[in-house]
């Protein structure tokens, strides 16, 4: 079973990689690519990052640059046209990105008699013949993941719309409302629900809910809402350290771990449970449980 899921995750990602190569000039939208791979858009970007080692858009940008390098060497097309095909509106932006990747400006690169740089073995590279070599990233360290079945959890929450590194403002609003309501009681749980991929959604439109688990009845008021986090099976792992590095743990969980797990991801957002407070805790000592929703195990439905 496990081998079969891993195989299936790899096949699905390969389908996406092939589609990307064939449609480098297209819009390549997240939802469409996720659909192609039969992954929920909530998790697809993380599965992709986990298995390929770079974000989806980063991957597309890199492939477009590699194709541009090939066209510079193998055609006589104007650099401005090649820049446009690579998705760059201005010559300057293209030159900057190109130099960063290949160490030379496009014109110098074209004149130089050096061959195209040899791609390293692991990453997926642009190939004009559409034969894609793909070896999914393996996790070097083992990852401790538990599968937990949780009941639906009612939460009081405040919605943050904006960059992830500014979610603190939502927590301030939530705390200011929750404290006089007596919600900061014993063993209260602080939960963050993330809906968007920061690589794809513009920072000012990223949605995040700062939540406190509640038990008794509670009425929504002003910016304080009430919602239910779905029950069911979740893969749970603990992230150790600063919140800025949560993405890496998500990538390992959604990529290498999920592919080996024998389980399918469920179309619901992941959430985070904060085990200690960023106030008065060194960033390196922060503990966060990540909950990744799973479909019921085969044969249990």
């Amino acid at each position: 079973m496990r081998d079969r899921t891993r195989h299936s995750y790899e096949q699905r990602i390969l389908r996406v990689l092939t589609h990307i190569q064939q449609h480098l000039d297209g819009p390549l939208e997240l939802d469409a690519l996720a659909g192609l791979a039969c992954f929920s858009p909530y998790h697809f970007h993380r599965v992709f990052t986990g298995m390929i080692g770079e974000g989806l858009m980063e991957h597309v940008r890199r492939l477009r640059l590699e194709r541009a390098a090939q066209r510079l060497k193998q055609s006589r097309r104007a650099i401005a046209d090649i820049a446009l095909e690579a998705g760059y509106g201005s010559h300057e932006a293209f030159t900057r990105a190109f130099r960063e990747r290949f160490g030379a400006a496009p014109s110098a690169f074209r004149r130089r008699h050096a061959p195209l740089p040899v791609p390293d073995g692991r990453a997926v590279h642009y190939t004009p013949d559409q034969v894609i070599r793909f070896s999914p990233k393996r996790s070097s360290r083992s990852m401790s993941v538990a599968i937990r079945t949780i009941r639906p959890q009612r939460v009081a929450f405040v919605r943050h719309v904006g960059p992830y590194d500014a979610v603190g403002e939502a927590w301030e609003r939530l705390m200011a409302r929750a404290a006089p309501m007596g919600l900061l009681g014993e063993s209260c749980q602080f939960i963050g629900v993330c809906y968007d991929d920061p690589e794809i959604t513009p920072p000012e439109r990223i949605r995040y809910d700062a939540c406190i688990a509640v038990s008794g009845p509670i009425r929504p008021r002003r910016d304080l809402g009430v919602q239910v986090i779905a029950g069911g099976d979740y893969a749970v792992t603990t992230h150790f350290g600063p919140y800025q590095r949560l993405g890496r743990t998500y990538a390992r969980l959604c990529g290498p771990w999920a592919a080996r797990s024998g389980r399918e991801l469920r179309a619901a957002p992941s959430f985070e449970v904060y085990l200690n407070s960023p106030e008065g805790t060194e960033p390196g000592d922060l503990l966060t449980d990540i909950y990744l929703p799973l479909m019921p195990a085969p044969g249990t439905e």
């Binding site: 200011a176 929750a178 404290a179 209260c188 106030e279």
Partner: peptide
């Protein structure tokens, strides 16, 4: 453990209530 829980619940409830009123301070150890 019950006493620790009660103490922290009170400490954070008071702190967050006062913070919302403009008097902010760190909850001590």
């Amino acid at each position: 453990e019950q006493c620790v829980g009660a103490l922290y619940a009170m400490a954070f409830t008071i702190k967050m209530t006062l913070k919302a009123k403009g008097q902010d301070y760190a909850v001590s150890k």
